[in-house]
Structure formats: structure tokens, C-alpha cells
């Protein structure tokens, strides 16, 4: 398909090539322990998290430096989100949610560096993240509330005749949660990067290249916004699901 376009118009569109997973050392076979570009950029995400959250706060200054106030801002942002949505008893999960948030934010922003690789654009990554949340919420809900957790699907405020129908809908929507949770994040990141690549393909034609470069700039700005908003949305949905597990009163 891409070859088609290449033959007819001299244009080369390879919007999906940037998501290829390659062995850093050039090996053809990728086994579970191979160091790939994905693992390199995940490692860089760890470095970014450590730099942002640990190195900047090493002075423990009362009057924070710029880096420290960013770290404190991130802390306060997620802390307030968890407290507002799940309540005081949800704060046990604050480090867990903070981990998700910091990983997604760092991976997203590192992925915006030209030529880089974005781990969060892969379903393998986001499905694991979403399934981790889903399993946590389900297990926690049953451990904490027992059979009462099933009340989440039995809408007591609805008329009795409607309740079985609503229960089916609720169960479906409950099991669709991890699907939409993971595809939302990967889809958003992938879409933005692919669109930038398509614009970059158009830049090969001299006449439209200024427009294409303008388009790349605009999409890049949008992607910066999307990177943060998707991390925020992923985190706040995690909080909302956790609230269901902690307080299943519908």
C-alpha cells in the first residue's frame, strides 16, 4: 500500500514504521530478554522519573528550586486527584497511581523527541497497564466488600423490571473498561505520531512543504497537550475505578 503511493507520486508514507521494535544490537530474533528500542526508552523513562522526582528534591529545600517545585507540583496534582476521587482510604494506592502517572507522562514526553520510540503507543504496554488496574480493582473489590461488590451491577435505584437489563449492560461496560482504558492511551499516542509522519511524507513535495511543516508544528503542539491529557485521563480513570472498588454503592 505504501509502495503503491511511492510508485505513483514519488511520495513515501511509512507512518507505522516508527513503531517497529528492533533489537538495539541488530539481532533479528527478539526474545523476551532482548534489549530493544522499547526497553531502552522505558529505561530512559526511569531515568527521567529519577531525575525529576529524586535528584531535584535531594536538597529538601524549604524554598524550592525550579526542579523541586515541579516534583512537588506533580506530587500535589496526583495526591489531590486520588484524595478527591477515591477519598481518604484510597490514599494507600497513591504510590501505585503515582507510578502509573509518572511512567505514562515520562514515556509520552520522551516519545515526542524526534527519532525516539514511544512505549505507550504499543498495545502490549497499555494492555498490561490497564489489566493491572482492572485486576487490582476487581480483586480489591471482592476482598474488601465480598459479594456486596456485585451490587455495582445491580442498580437498586432503577425499577425492578429494568434491573436485569441494566445488570447486563453494567457487566458489559465493566469488562469493556480495560479495553477502552488501554486502547484510548495507545490509540491517541499512535494516532498523533502517525499523523505527524503523514505530514512529514507530504513535505517531500516542494510546493506543499511549508504547509506540511506548519502542519507538523501544529500537530506537535497538539501532541504535547495530548501526551499530558492522556496521562491525566488514564490516572483519573484509574482513580474512578478504584472508587468503585472501595465504595461500590452505585
Amino acid at each position: 500500500m505504501a509502495d503503491d503511493a511511492a510508485k505513483s507520486g514519488g511520495l513515501e508514507f511509512h507512518p507505522m514504521d516508527q513503531f517497529n521494535i528492533k533489537d538495539v544490537f541488530g539481532g533479528a530474533e527478539i526474545s523476551w530478554y532482548t534489549i530493544t528500542n522499547a526497553s531502552v526508552w522505558m529505561g530512559l523513562a526511569i531515568v527521567a522519573v529519577v531525575a525529576l522526582m529524586v535528584l531535584t528534591t535531594s536538597k529538601r529545600a524549604i524554598v524550592p528550586s525550579r526542579g523541586q517545585s515541579v516534583a512537588e507540583l506533580a506530587y500535589g496534582f496526583v495526591y489531590k486527584m486520588v484524595e478527591d476521587v477515591t477519598g481518604k482510604d484510597g490514599l494507600v494506592f497513591f504510590p501505585y497511581i503515582m507510578t502509573l502517572f509518572m511512567f505514562i507522562v515520562c514515556a509520552n514526553f520522551l516519545g515526542l523527541i524526534p527519532g525516539s520510540f514511544t512505549p505507550t503507543s504499543h498495545f502490549a504496554v497499555t494492555v498490561v497497564l490497564a489489566m493491572a488496574v482492572f485486576l487490582t480493582v476487581t480483586i480489591l473489590g471482592f476482598v474488601k466488600n465480598g459479594a456486596k461488590f456485585l451490587g455495582l451491577f445491580w442498580v437498586a435505584s432503577a425499577p425492578l423490571a429494568l434491573r436485569p437489563v441494566l445488570a447486563i449492560i453494567e457487566i458489559i461496560s465493566y469488562f469493556v473498561r480495560p479495553v477502552s482504558h488501554s486502547i484510548r492511551l495507545a490509540g491517541n499516542v499512535m494516532a498523533g505520531h502517525a499523523v505527524i509522519k503523514v505530514f512529514a511524507g507530504f513535505a517531500a513535495i516542494a510546493v506543499v512543504s511549508p504547509v506540511a511543516i506548519l502542519g507538523i508544528t501544529a500537530m506537535y503542539a497538539l501532541e504535547i497537550l495530548v501526551s499530558f491529557i492522556q496521562a491525566y485521563v488514564f490516572t483519573i480513570l484509574t482513580c474512578v475505578y478504584l472508587k468503585d472498588a472501595l465504595h461500590p454503592s452505585h
Binding site: 521494535i21 527478539i30 526474545s31 523476551w32 530478554y33 532482548t34 530493544t36 522499547a38 526497553s39 522505558m42 529505561g43 523513562a45 526511569i46 522519573v49 529519577v50 522526582m53 529524586v54 504510590p95 501505585y96 503515582m98 507510578t99 502509573l100 509518572m102 511512567f103 512505549p119 504499543h122 502490549a124 504496554v125 498490561v128 497497564l129 493491572a132
Partner: peptide, 21 residues
């Protein structure tokens, strides 16, 4: 490639979790 990514992702998350907590 899923096995590879999942392995490194889990490792990354564990490291970040311990660094943060």
C-alpha cells in the same frame, strides 16, 4: 514482540514503584 515488551514494562514499573515509594 509482546513478551519482550511486557517483561521490560513490568521491570520498569517495579523500578519506578520502588524509587517513588
Amino acid at each position: 514482540t509482546w513478551g519482550n515488551q511486557i517483561f521490560w514494562l513490568v521491570l520498569t514499573l517495579i523500578v519506578i514503584y520502588f524509587v517513588l515509594s
